[in-house]
Amino acid sequence: THHSTMSPEEFISRIMEAEPPEIYLMEDLKKPFTEASMMMSLTNLADKELVLMISWAKKIPGFLELSLTDQIHLLKCCWLEILMLGLMWRSVDHPGKLIFSPDFKLNREEGQCVEGIMEIFDMLLAATSRFRELKLQREEYVCLKAMILLNSNLCTSSPQTAEELESRNKLLRLLDSVIDALVWAISKLGLSTQQQTLRLGHLTMLLSHIRHVSNKGMDHLSTMKRKNVVLVYDLLLEMLDANTSS
């Protein structure tokens, strides 16, 4: 079924099915952490998650209909935001903690060992608290994640060729489907019409905070790489270089 003919319920069910499996770091964590050991664990986990993220994006109805150039651009723009939203979702029921994976959980204070990361941890914890206050539902979470992906490059590129224009139009229609799905998910919560509108506003406004933390995180990781605190390799290196060079 094409996404344009899917009901919002069907669309959400497809993106729920696309959710990546739980991922484990699978390392013997030696505590207390050093700056290098914590950065290495964080980047190892990010690299594993990135591979699953590509698989997730491919399962979003309509994503593979976009041009390959658009697919690459979207993923390279949003990967850290997607990782951070996933982290917030895992951490939403654990105030004061960041649940990077079931076998890699950090307290705010543990961020002290990495220069400059505490500020990012605090921003992540603050956004997570906001999601906790809003009692974010799983259906809403999957819609927000798809919105981040599809919205990530909308204002940084303008289509030049007919093919690019076609892909952009497809992207806009796909975003319509995701917004419809989020509106539908909110409508199931038994709120008044006004409360539903407010909730939509509050949830989407949080996306600008996630973009902000992601930019901070990207700068931090680039600095750590430049200072040789951590060796960044594979897919993560490709994504990071893509961001730092653009």
């Binding site: 594993k48 590509i54 698989s55 390959l68 697919q71 690459i72 490709e238 994504m239």
Partner: peptide
């Protein structure tokens, strides 16, 4: 450098029909 060359792994994962889990 072309976009595909710059993003070799990403490009491969997007084009490959094999599960990225297997590739990882």
């Amino acid at each position: 450098t072309s976009l595909k060359e710059k993003h070799k792994i990403l490009h491969q994962l997007l084009q490959n029909s094999t599960s990225p889990v297997d590739l990882a």
